[in-house]
Design a protein around this nucleic acid. Sequence first.
DNA 1: CGAATAGTGTCTGTGAGACAGTATCGC
DNA 2: GCGATACTGTCTCACAGACACTATTCG
Lengths: 247, 247
Amino acid sequence: MASQRSPSRVAAPDFERPLVTVDVVIFTVLDEQLKVLLVRRPEAATDPFPGRLALPGGFVNVDLDASLADCALRKLGEKTGFSAPYLEQLGSWGSATRDPRGWCTTHVYFALVPPPADSEEMASAASEWIEVNAALRKRLAFDHAEILAAAVERLRGKVEYTSLPAFLLEEPFTLPQLQRTYEIVLGRPMDKSAFRKRMLDAQFLLEAGSIAGDAGRAAMGYRILDRERAAVFPRTFRSVESPASKE
Amino acid sequence: MASQRSPSRVAAPDFERPLVTVDVVIFTVLDEQLKVLLVRRPEAATDPFPGRLALPGGFVNVDLDASLADCALRKLGEKTGFSAPYLEQLGSWGSATRDPRGWCTTHVYFALVPPPADSEEMASAASEWIEVNAALRKRLAFDHAEILAAAVERLRGKVEYTSLPAFLLEEPFTLPQLQRTYEIVLGRPMDKSAFRKRMLDAQFLLEAGSIAGDAGRAAMGYRILDRERAAVFPRTFRSVESPASKE
DNA sequence: CGAATAGTGTCTGTGAGACAGTATCGC
DNA sequence: GCGATACTGTCTCACAGACACTATTCG
């Protein structure tokens, strides 16, 4: 069909084509830590970066994938069982040198998923959940360290003014759980009262019945109203970084 | 593995490769309007979308371009003479159907440039500056209407909390000029006092001597401290959209 | 002098954060 | 009752916007 020399009415140019891949940065919160899913590359020496940890991803399959987002969803489904996670495009990287196999581009997506029910199940498939700061210190395949850093920065940045952490929780969840998730991602404690005011004012939560914890008063459970997009808050958390030195 | 082009140790897989292109959305403010640069595609029937308006762009040249950003800068240089504009990646689009020539991806960058000294000069090269709302109503080639819409949304969104509009002006510029630029991009008037406070507090401007206008008091000229990145304000402009109906 | 534009001072409402108080649960 | 957790009320301070004021330039 769209082969390089197809004699259709509109001809594709005879340029050499770069490789086209898709990678997915998959975040979750597990054991009170922000973690990212990494896979170990095959040991075969014919493979680039054998044995290294890398972001899950691979080549776009022109026959299987209708679009880039489709391809990302396929990769995500292959690695995790998740069907309706939060998926957003992070950006693309491409250069002559980032892949020893040739001029290579990657379209990077970033996904937020609730913690896997059985975290061991995945380790078997040569993939592991790794705490992000530890992951950032590792030597990853390709330029994946740079990509991961960009993803973490984007996540932390957007968490300051969006409802993104809600996608890291299994529904229904409670506001204290959600606050804990914010605190884990941002690495700083937050005020309960201000937090609740902000979440409830943003109109993105749906009440879903009371949930009893291990101890103390039961809490209201919530679901996300629109799983397609995150809510955007009118202001960022903590606009001033610290009671600054005013000379 | 059998690879026809790569005799190296690591072989490239034999997948069919999508087409890889780069497009650039170039914004400027001209005649008190936000405009975007569009090019008219050749009339030849062997070309997709002959005669249609499109974003400037084209295929990645594996021999000329070291990276995607390089390619974007090359396209930008070919269309405008600008050397140091603001350039940021917008995202990537790719699917089996967006280009009649086959499975095609595009990496889209968005650039902010000062108004061209001679706006006629460019029209000669089959490219024109078109007011964005008019451009959004036109039937553009490929999925460029969708891409342009995303670019305008990103621009307007970021203008609310960043110094991006400063890159739309020739240096040095004055604060009233900068305010006017904000107002043009956002389509709404802003308060002078609040605007100045915000700009000066953000510490991204460098004083560059007084500039006399056509009438009235001369104004202080400014340059951008760091042309590589935009300043981010701690708060967004007008966090509340309107004195809302409180039930 | 007045017109035009640049730049500053002052007031006020809003709202986020701090923190203390109240409510509800299991035992 | 008590401990533990969920939730709410109140106070305060910062700051963005509104708007009126002063400053500088030109003719």
